[in-house]
Amino acid sequence: MSTHDLFKAENAILAAARTVGEQTNLSPETYRNELVSLIEHYHRLVRESRRLIAHSDRAERELNTLNARLHELAVAMEYKATHDPLTNIYNRGAIIERMTHSLSKSHVALVVLDIDYFKCINDEFGHPTGDAVICELVSRVQGVLNGLGDIGRVGGEEFSIVLAEFSLAQAVTLVEEIHASLNQSPLAALPQRLVTASFGVSWCPRGTRFEDAYGSADAALYEAKRQGRNRIMQKTICSAKEY
C-alpha cells in the first residue's frame, strides 16, 4: 500500500478489524470494542461518501450547464464569423471558402452581382436606405434561388452566388429570373426608383482555381457594366477536362 493512500485511515481500520475477526478466542469485550470502532468509522465513511457524491453530482451538473452554454456560444461565434451581419448571408471569407470547396468537388457556375448605381442611392437617400435596399435585394435573390446554391456578400454592394453542379445554361436561366424580378417592380425600400443589378456568370470545370473562377465571373460583370449595366454577361473557363 502506498504511504500516500487516500484511504489510509480506512484501510488501517479494516486491517485491525480483520485481525480481530480472524481470531476466535478473544474476550467478548474485545470483539465489542472492535465492532464499536468499526461502526464509528463506517458511519463516517457513509457520511463522507454521501457528501462527496452530492458534491461531484453538483459539479457535474454545473459542468454540463457550462458545456451546453459553451456549445451555444461556439455555434453563435461560428455563425458570426461566417455571416454578414446586415444581410445574414455568407460573408466574403465564408463564400470564398464555399466556392473553393465546391470547385474541388464538381463543376460550378459562379455568379457575381453588383447593384447598379448603388453609390448614388447611398448619396441621394442616405445609408439607412442603402442598407434597406441591400437587404431587400438579397431577399429577392433568395426568393428566386429558393434554396439553390450559396450566396454571399463579397463587398459593399457586390454579391456572389455559387451554383455547384450547374450547367452554364441552368445558371443563366436562374440569373435571368433574378434580373427579371428586379426589373419587374421597385423595392419597397425605394419605391420611387427601380434598383437593378449587373451580373457576370462564369462556368468552371472541377479543379478550377478560385482566383481564375472569380476573375472570369468578375470580367463578365465588368463587361455587363461596360455595356450599360442591368444585364447579364457570361464566360466559360475551358480546361483539358471536358464535361
Binding site: E48, R51, L52, H55, S56
Partner: peptide, 13 residues
C-alpha cells in the same frame, strides 16, 4: 476535486 475533498474531511476531523 473529489480526492481533495476526501483529504479535507480528514483535516476537518
Amino acid at each position: 476535486n473529489s480526492s481533495s475533498t476526501k483529504m479535507l474531511f480528514g483535516f476537518f476531523e
